[in-house]
Simulated assay, not measured.
Amino acid sequence: MSQVKYYYDSDTLSYRKIEPKKGKKFALVILFLLGIIATSFILALVYINIPSVETPKEKAYKREVENMKFQYELLNKRMEDVVSVLKNVEERDNNIYRVYFEANPISIEQRKSGFGGINRYKDLEGYENSEIIVEATESLDKLSKRVVIQSKSLDEIAALAKNKEALLASIPAIQPVKNDDLKRMASGYGIRMHPILKYRKMHNGMDFSAPSNTEIFATGNATVKKAKRTSGFGNLIVLDHGFGYETYYAHLSKFNVKPGQKVKRGEIIGHVGNTGLSTAPHLHYEVHKNGKVVNPINFYHGDLTAEEYDIMLNQSTLENQSLD
């Protein structure tokens, strides 16, 4: 309680209470309120302009943000290491595995496709640390896409590896007639004079001159696609080796196989003859790859020595007259 003050009144010879003036009391109240406002303003300025003044909660949030930044930096570094390893795997995949198994390489555009156009990280923008969050998320997305593509590629290589043994056994790789039975390699692949039509035309195979009924061998594992009489090729056998390969054996005297039959490389499928448009007993032999005729000279690596191959190569290039 505030003290009550008195004064001595000489007229009444008594003590009287001193009453404060109303104006002075009001002024004291105003002065007190102004003091409070001024003090609050000064304290606010001090708080705003002194960064070190932080509440415990703000200090905890700040530590958490700094820790998150550090963790994102570590994450980005680890992803860079993983990308480096993945790049090495991609290079080996293109330059070793896919080359060995005759598969087309995967371009860098294919491996990194699918990240243009729309802004897929819009929801992560607008925050104080949006840049590092977007960078980490985008890097992870790109890495995931490349891993998926590489995984599919390795699945494809694994399937090709399983088929490699079958491919090697199926590719035409030997002569269809033994060297001991050959009179000569009569005509090769290329433009030749036709013996019956009497004009130069494309000769799509190789002619092996041999006595009638000489054995003819399948040049690779295959399924017999055709074994029938034709007008131009006479008695014709067509073998389907799979993997896009087919071989033709024309002018035969007789068949040893029938359509749908499975044959192995080196198995006897027919005998040399002189049927169809032919001027002498011989075998006309063709190799087809993916529906196109190719030079059979490239498919004798399975049974010829280097010297024998050179002799056949030289004979096949002579522009002589074919036998069919």
Rank of each mutant, 00 (worst) to 15 (best):
L283D: 05
G291Y: 08
V287W: 06
H271P: 00
E286M: 12
P296W: 00
L277N: 12
H301E: 14
R265C: 14
S278V: 02
V272S: 05
N290M: 12
I268W: 11
K292L: 13
H282Y: 08
G276E: 01
H271Y: 15
F299G: 06
K289Y: 15
R265M: 14
F299N: 08
T279S: 12
V293C: 09
V294G: 10
P281C: 01
I297S: 14
A280P: 00
L283N: 04
P296Y: 02
L277G: 03
H284E: 06
H282E: 08
G273S: 07
R265E: 10
G273P: 02
K292T: 12
G266N: 09
V272T: 12
T279P: 01
V287E: 08
K289E: 11
I268E: 13
G273W: 04
E286Y: 10
K292R: 15
G276W: 00
V287A: 06
H288E: 13
S278N: 02
P281D: 00
L277F: 14
N290H: 14
P296C: 01
V287S: 03
G291R: 03
H288Y: 15
G266M: 03
E267P: 08
V287Y: 06
H282T: 10
G266A: 12
S278I: 02
H301P: 01
F299P: 01
K289D: 09
P296N: 03
V293W: 08
I268F: 09
T275N: 04
